[in-house]
């Protein structure tokens, strides 16, 4: 399964970015391979429509779970339509930390 975590940097030790559409990086974690694959969000500084465009990146990469701070209205409807589950992380820690908390079932699901 592929999990996406929004991140301020390309490494799993970098802090989680709480904004979805404007996140500088998306870290894709493949639970079978166990690695974190960083993808630069080229829409982070775009003028408009960042949420849906970023959501398209997740869909194209086959992510099934998204861990982030918050997702705006349009992006959320896209993500839900695509069947991706969203978990909220707002502890200010690293991508690693968010992932561990997700595995332990400590993160709340966004409706």
């Amino acid at each position: 399964m592929i999990i996406c975590i929004t991140s301020k940097g390309p490494k799993s030790t970098d802090p989680v970015e709480e904004r979805f559409g404007r996140s500088p990086y998306f870290l894709f974690h493949d639970t079978e391979k166990g690695d974190f694959d960083p993808v630069t969000n080229k829409f982070a500084d775009a003028a408009g429509g960042v949420g849906p465009r970023a959501a398209q990146v997740l869909i194209d990469r086959g992510a099934k779970v998204l861990i982030t701070g918050n997702v705006g209205g349009n992006a959320l409807s896209v993500i839900q339509a695509a069947g991706i589950e969203v978990f909220r992380y707002r502890d200010g820690g690293s991508v690693e930390d968010a992932f561990q908390k997700y595995q332990k079932g400590l993160l709340g699901k966004m409706a």
């Binding site: 408009g48 849906p52 409807s77 896209v78 339509a81």
Partner: peptide
Amino acid sequence: CQYGAIVVLSQKNLFFPEM
């Protein structure tokens, strides 16, 4: 689309007219 008005899923397309 520069405005993020279209998202393509495997079975359907989503369109956001107001964008």
